[in-house]
Each structure stands twice: as structure tokens, then as C-alpha cells.
Amino acid sequence: MSATAGTVYRIFAGLKKDPLGMAGFVLVSLIVFLAVFAAWLAPYDPLEVDVYNRLASPSFAHWLGTDQLGRDILSRVLYGGQVALRVSLLAISISMAVGLVLGMLAGFGPRWLDRVLVVAFDTVRSFPTIMFALAVVALTGPSLNTVIGVIIVTSIPVYARVVRTQTLALRERDFILAERAMGASTFRILRHHVLPNIIAPLFILASMDVPAVVGMEAGLSFLGLGVSPPTPSWGSILNDGYSYLRNSPWPIIAGGLPLIAVTLGFTFFGESLRDIFDPRLRRKDQ
């Protein structure tokens, strides 16, 4: 427990010295807060149609204007954030867990297993993600679960490769050999000696992966492969806005800004975390 408290303290001490990282952290907290409390914060029902007020510009009544059906864009953006965060949380945690197990097996297990797994990772990564998503949607129909599934399958190799490399680097270290000499089981070595030493970089990777996943969800929803219509998603807001771009620029701006905010926030925060936990990786120009 005290180790966890120490880690938290270390993160905040590091963030204090890194204004960009702090900005990222604030941005991330803000996005999470807005998405989690969307139901209380949103001024309107995101599905409520108001045909007399279509494609309105921002006003005090509608801070970000309305879309082609007169729905309040601010409310839709807030609810869209919920979708985006739910997808990233689910997809990243599952692919991280599976990648962790497969990566440790590849890195610590027998050589043939390593080869089989590496070929499998490379095979999955060689599919263009959008093509893969199109194929899956053609088979199962568009839904949020399909999006999550596609993201999980394509992200597992990313995590597994990082874990495999780290495990390979650890496996011949003296403290691992010492455990083996004492007769510790492979499971015990992986659980108590390998895992604690590779988990920190994995969380940094996950943090920097959030923008990619959010972008992927938005992209698939933009193409109509993700959430089904009335449900708001940043991607579907962008798609609606794209069709009516000549009438009003506001839907595109409102759908794009949160994507930019998520990307900047999580990237700054992730880079700052990386610098805190591994100063050797710090960029040379600093």
C-alpha cells in the first residue's frame, strides 16, 4: 500500500516540474469529469429533436449550436465523450490484460511458443485496421461491441510485443536466475518478479494509446461502422456535420475539438509519466 502512495506522490512531484504534463493531466481530468457527469451537465436530452431550430449557430440557449435535426450539440458531445471513454477503458484494459499474458508467455516460455506467438502478432498487425473492421462489420453488423472487439484484436499485439521485449530483457537477469536456483515456479517468477518490473511502462503505453483508440472509435463511427444512429459519438457528430458543412461549420468544430483535446491531454500526460518513471527515455533536446 505504501508503495502505491509513494508512486502517486512521485507522479505529482514530477508533474509539478513539468507544466505540459500538468496541463495534460488537467485536460484528462476535465474530459473524464465531463464524460462521467454528462447526464447532470448536459443542458438538453441529446436525442431531443427540435426541427424549428436546425443547424443553429452557438447562442446562450445552445452553446455549441444545433445539428441538422435541431439536437443540442453540446449535449451530444458530452454524451459522445461517454461512448469514447467507455470504448477506450474496455478495449485498452482487455487488450492490455491479454497482451500481458501472451507477451510474458512469449518472452519467458519455450522458444517454439515465442515463434508461434510472434508470427501471430505480426499476422494480426499486417491487416489494415479499417479493412479488418469492415470485414467484421459485414459479418456482424455495426455496433459498439464490434468496435470494441476490433480495437481489442488489433491492440493485443502492440501490448504483447512490448511485454515480450521487456520479459526477454528480464529473463536472464540475476534476480530471476536466483529465483530459479531457489526452485521458484515459472508462475511465481512471472507474477512476483517479472510483472512488477514491466507494469509501469505498460500503463504509460496505455495512456498514450487512449487517443488512438478514441480516434479509431470516432473513425469507425464516422464511417457508420460504429454506434448506430441516434446514439451520439464524436465520430457520428463529425459525420452529420460533414453532410451539412455548407450550412453550418459548428458541428464539425464541436465534434473535432474534443478529439484534439483527448489527443493532446493523454499524450502530454503519458509523456510526462514516461519521463517520471524512466528518465533515460527523456527526449534529448530537454
Binding site: D174, A181, M182, T186, N197
Partner: peptide
Amino acid sequence: NNRLNPDRKRVALMFQDPVGSLSPR
């Protein structure tokens, strides 16, 4: 890795690198 082998624990090994042979976390 043979925990069941009672002889395994009767031989102990001390590694060359004193710090590196201790689990860092």
C-alpha cells in the same frame, strides 16, 4: 524448477552482482 526435489534447497547460490541478484521491486 523442481520444488519437489528436496536436494534443490540444499544447494544455495550467491550471485556475482550483489544488488542485481535481488528483485528490484
